[in-house]
Design a protein around this nucleic acid. Sequence first.
DNA 1: CGTAAACTCAATTGACTTGGTAGAGTCAAC
DNA 2: GTTGACTCTACCAAGTCAATTGAGTTTACG
Lengths: 156, 156
Amino acid sequence: MLTSKAKYALRAMIDLAIETGTGPRRPFFIGDIARRQDIPRRFLENILLDLRKHGLVVSHRGKAGGYALAKAPDLISFADIIRAIDGPLALTPCTSRTAYQRCEDCRDEAMCAIRKTMLKVRQASADILESTTLAQAASTGEGVNDAIDQVRATGD
Amino acid sequence: MLTSKAKYALRAMIDLAIETGTGPRRPFFIGDIARRQDIPRRFLENILLDLRKHGLVVSHRGKAGGYALAKAPDLISFADIIRAIDGPLALTPCTSRTAYQRCEDCRDEAMCAIRKTMLKVRQASADILESTTLAQAASTGEGVNDAIDQVRATGD
DNA sequence: CGTAAACTCAATTGACTTGGTAGAGTCAAC
DNA sequence: GTTGACTCTACCAAGTCAATTGAGTTTACG
């Protein structure tokens, strides 16, 4: 399972992508993101700091500061965000591309049945998570908001 | 990542499958499994107890007791074992088939971009883990042992 | 019988992680 | 030079992980 920190991170990043839209990337306040996404504000500070250290957002300090996406929304994947917050996608260290570590107790990696299967799982998960970008998520995300706004507007 | 408990469980179950081979399912001692697989013995007791409570192994008490596979090796999948020890395969509660829980903060499940992606990941992972059985793992596993024995025999 | 050798069950432990909170900063725009 | 933003370090309570411990209970066998 993802930690709630990682889920918050995904939501915050999608929020940034939605607010940014197709225009230039400009910074938004933590407080605004926290309010819109209903994320504990001080906790979101930690999360955005982590994301910044991993190069996924940039910050501007001072009165007109805030956080902005570090890259175009179609260049940031779910995998980037999850890896930044929760660490490797793989189910075992011996199948992680980003944090590989040999099994201490595995006699022959090439033949290990567990490893073979975990490699397949990691590959399948990574394929999906790396090909899903903020740009895609933001467009479905906006759909949700539009739909809700419409419901609200028509009083349904 | 899997917990080490789940990895031990997979190893112990594969060990049982290898020892059982194609013959009838008979019980093996915790101590023997622990020694062969280099798993802390008392910890393995907990694990086998969990696996028994989930119906994956059966136990016999008393002097000639032990643990045996509850079903044929080709009817027990990696997914069964991982679910028994670590819980749901899904990355979020809202995409778990076995422990579904609605997102408290999700406005529209059908349109949620995060959920949509996590569903795909769970489906892909489950497809692999449910189709990989102890029977398959045991045959590659035996290959490893044979290969190692051969290396030992030829002194290489 | 009775006892050795197996499984069973509940509890404990120590280190670490998770999900937050708090406070004292630093920085930049006006 | 103050205001309103981010930053850094630290802290905390609760829970999880990875075992370990100890006191049973059960059964085969002589």
